[in-house]
Amino acid sequence: MVKDFVNGLWGENPIFRAVIGICSALAVTTAGQNGIAMGLALTFVLTCSSILVSILKNIIPSKVRIPCYIIVIATFTTIVDLFMKAYFPALYQVMGIFIPLIVVNCIVLWRAEGFASKMSLIRSIADALGMGLGYAWAITLISIVREILGSGTLFGIHIMGANFTHWVIMLLPPGAFLVMGILVGIMNMITRKPVKNTHCH
């Protein structure tokens, strides 16, 4: 159970390891709070969907399982969408279409089909929370880097001084790819042993 939880946080981290569901990760990560909000929204949808899928796994006929999963996921996504619109309008304006897009986020369907539909309820919850929070910390890290360099702020607070030159590229799509690529590289450097002298002729 603990292993299932940690797996999503690090070992099979959806962003840095599986490189899955990166559409939203690249699009909304221009400011730290966007990363946190998107991460929590996805964690909520993922956990609720995994619970239901795991409970219903023996009732749902295998031939219609994908439509069933999609209905479940879509329902929870719409709930998040409505509540965000009602209670966090400022955040909703920034995140806009990316909240409804959680429906087609491959992480959710990946865990529903690949894990929750085969495992016990407890393990499914642990896995969903691990994956969701793994996604959340990964995109929050990307957001923080992009926010500091792109806007000179951290969670909206100016930290780089008044004369700081904004790195415009960090707020644009290429910046998202660059930051993510560099972070994946750093993660690999930490976890992998360096390969020595493998030049080929």
């Binding site: 030159t165 790195w167 415009v168 590229i169 960090m170 644009l172 290429p174």
Partner: peptide
Amino acid sequence: VFLMITFPVQ
């Protein structure tokens, strides 16, 4: 090109 996009004003 990186500099061009990153620091367009400068």
